[in-house]
Design a binder for these strands. Sequence first.
RNA 1: GGCCCCAUUGUCUAGUGGACCAGGACGUAGCCCUCUCAAGGCUAAAACACGGGUUCGAAUCCCGUUGGGGCCA
Length: 548
Amino acid sequence: MNKIRVRFAPSPTGYLHIGGARTALFNWLFAKKNGGAFILRIEDTDEARSTDESIRAIIESMQWLGLNWDEGPKIEDRGQRTEVRGQGTEVRGQRTEVRGQKTGDREKTHPPPLISQLSSLNSHLSPLTSHPSTLNSQLGSYGPYFQMERLDIYKKYAKQLISNGKAYYCYCTPEELKTMREEQQSKKLPPKYDGRCRNRGVRTDGGGQNAVIRFKMPREGKIAFDDIVRGHLEFENTLLDDFVILKASGVPTYNFACTIDDKLMEISHVIRGDDHLSNTPRQIHLYNALNWELPQFAHLSMILGPDGSRLSKRHGHTSVLEYKNDGYLNVALINYLALLGWSTSDSQQIFELDELLNKFSLEKCSKSPAIFDIQKLQWLNMEYLKKLSAEEIYKKSIPFITNAALPMDNPGLIIKILRTEKEKIKLLSDVPNIIDFFVLNDVKYESSALEKVLKDENADKILRDLLPIFENCNDFSKVLLEKSVRNFCELNGIKTSRAFHPVRVAVSGRMYGPGLFDLLELLGKQKVVERIAKFLSEYLEYGEEDKS
RNA sequence: GGCCCCAUUGUCUAGUGGACCAGGACGUAGCCCUCUCAAGGCUAAAACACGGGUUCGAAUCCCGUUGGGGCCA
């Protein structure tokens, strides 16, 4: 059996979105599970809409998710063009031609030394990448493939098709095509190219400058293939027209470039979104015309927004990096993505990566589209957060703490706080709010909390009585503190909650947080005493006067 | 407009002719725990799109309808 080789082939016309990431993940899982290769190919032939920013975002997203690719042109070969495609046109054609002819030559793909400039991209290596199966992959050693660097290859095959009589030059002008379309529409016929240039031959008068190359589509019969997730599929050839494979600019169209690359890169399984299902017959005709063996196809169902329509910006966050910035863990996103359109017979929900690799199969992918549900992602995120130690959570939340401009001079304290509070964290971005009143000098009092305390007219007296107890407490430990405060409540016949709540609000400014005595111990005697005193003078005396 | 794909609770799904008055998970509601907020534990409500067949028997197979999605323009 041939080696398993798969690819993820995004167009760099926007950020890597959730649907794309899921496709990438399934490809990656399939490759890793079967000891195959996973390739990243940037389909940047839509020159108007492709941007370097998108390429950067795609790469960063893939790396954050730990979906590293196994080969590609070496970074050294690309000179300055490391993580993004560059300008070095003169080298492009030659080198890529070489790659194109020597795709069988896999020795080239042994990892060269890491390039330092790219290793920075690896700084937030996910736990995923420490999985043994991914260790061999050197993130950043290889750039992905870029189709715009392979133009000569497509040209070569387009010419080959012409000389074999499977394709032809088309000299139709835009006006001509427009008229044709209008005529067809007026006759209620489906608009498609009628093939009028099929027999015009090659023009030599120089008027052929703007010629495109069209594929000669068979005009009868049908094409059939077996899709791993969809089963047997058939399409009528008459419905397909002589589509353009190479534009006048020399840039290939999607179906053509994709087919050529899949073949040259020896892709064994084309795993992609459902939206490409209708493109598949065209591509199969191309394979046939070139006498190439077909890969296996697997079309994954789409991921939709909450309203059941195609996932788009108006559904809120759709880009992978937005989830990173929101404080989701890569492992949680991976797990969630895996659950969208794939499942095991026992409906298992949480999968460690090795488990996922072990159990994943294309056959168990569902045919129906899936709606993205952020709630479940959040739940999974929490589950994964629970597995982390306070130290690990701290490390991962540093960017969020920094971003909130909180002092970072006492990591030990933050870790201690996280130890008591970690099961409440839904997102890494929750961390600043959980720790801020510990590490900041001033307490921000939430109005709802304030209201609640001021409502109890005894709060003032209770706090006044409690203050010396705290002041005189030499061992400011939660056990002792709890004993003292409970003791105080009992002696004075006060319900504990009537004492606990004012203290909590006075020192933290809010009604929620750690257990009161954990809170006090973590805060320390000095801050507790200072804050209660300040609270008494700033809020409660005023409250007294107000009442009288 | 043509063609293609899809259809189990609000959501992700299990289910491949009898073990299904449909199982798991998220979410929702209630209760318990409790100094607060969470977490946790327990319980509950909630689905086979519709209509025809086939069959002793259908969520499961076939046809149609409806709905959703995609591709080509």
